[in-house]
Amino acid sequence: MGLRVNDLKVYYQTLRGEVKALDGVTFAVGDGEILGLAGESGCGKTTLGKSLIRMDGRMRHTGGTVELDGAELPIGDDRRMNRFRFSEVSIIPQYAMSAMNPTRKIGKMVADLLESRGLRYRNLAGELERRLDLVELPREVLGSYPLELSGGMKQRMVMVISTLLDPSLLIADEITSALDVSTQKAVARTLVGFRDRGFVRSVIFITHDISLTYQIADTIMVMYAGKVAEKARADVIVNAPRHPYTKLLISSLPEVGVRYADRKLAGIPGSPPSLLDPPTGCRFRDRCPLAHDKCAEEPPAVEVEPDHFVACWKA
C-alpha cells in the first residue's frame, strides 16, 4: 500500500520567523517503489525525510497528513511515532557515517538499538550475519569500532542496521554523496538489492544528483523551494520533463559520454528564494524564462499524463 503524503506542511520556528521548508507537499510511494527525491540544496529534501520519522525541536507539523500502509503516521507526535521508528519507517540520515558512536563496537551498538525496541540481539544475530554476508562485509566488523571501517564499508553497515527489521519505508538521505564513484555505485546498487529482496518495501532516495537517481529510482520527484515541481517515472523526468525548472536542471548537467568542444551548457541564473518569506505565486517565477502574469498565482499540481504530475501553468 505504501506511503501517502497529503498537503504536508512543516515549518521551522526561528527567531526571525517561520521557515516554510515544506509548504503543501503531496505525493505517494507505492510498494516496491524507489522514489528519487531531487532538487537544489535548501529545497526541503532533508526536512521531508526527517518529517516522516523524527522531527527536530524546531520543526512544527503545521498541516497535512501522512499515511503508511493505510494507517495514519502521527508525525507530529514524537511519542506516538516511537512505535513506528526503525520497525516501520527507518532512515539513513545525511552524515550517518560520522554519526556512529566512535567508542562503541558496532555489534554492541546494534544490540543497544534492538534492546531499545524490546528485541533480543540473540534472536536476530543469525539474520544480521546473513545480511552482512550479502553485502560482503566480514562478520568481524561487529567486533570493530566504526573508525576501523572504510567509507563504503560504514555505509553498507548502516544500511544493514537500518533495514534489519524489514521496515515498510526506508529514507536514504544523500547516502553516497561523500563516496567515490566506484563505491557510490556499489552502495546504490546494494540499496536496490535490499528492495528486490524485500528488506524494505519502499525507498525514498534523496540526492542532489539527478544522474545518480536516474540509475536506481523508479520515479523521480523534483522539489523546488519547499514544493513539488514535478514527479514522474525516472525516464520521463530525464527524457521528457515538462516543468521549466526540471528542464533547465537536466540541461545543465555535463555528461562523460559527450564531447563539448564547441557546445556550452547553461546554468540557471539567480538562486532559490528565501523560505522565511517566500514569494506568492510560483516560487520559480523570478528565475523562469517562461514566467508570465498568470504565474503570480500559485500553479496547482496537475496530472498531465498518468503518474506525471507538474506544477506549472505552462506545462
Partner: peptide, 8 residues
C-alpha cells in the same frame, strides 16, 4: 561507475 543520463 559514473552515473549518466544517457546510459544505465
Amino acid at each position: 561507475s559514473v552515473p549518466q543520463l544517457t546510459t544505465k
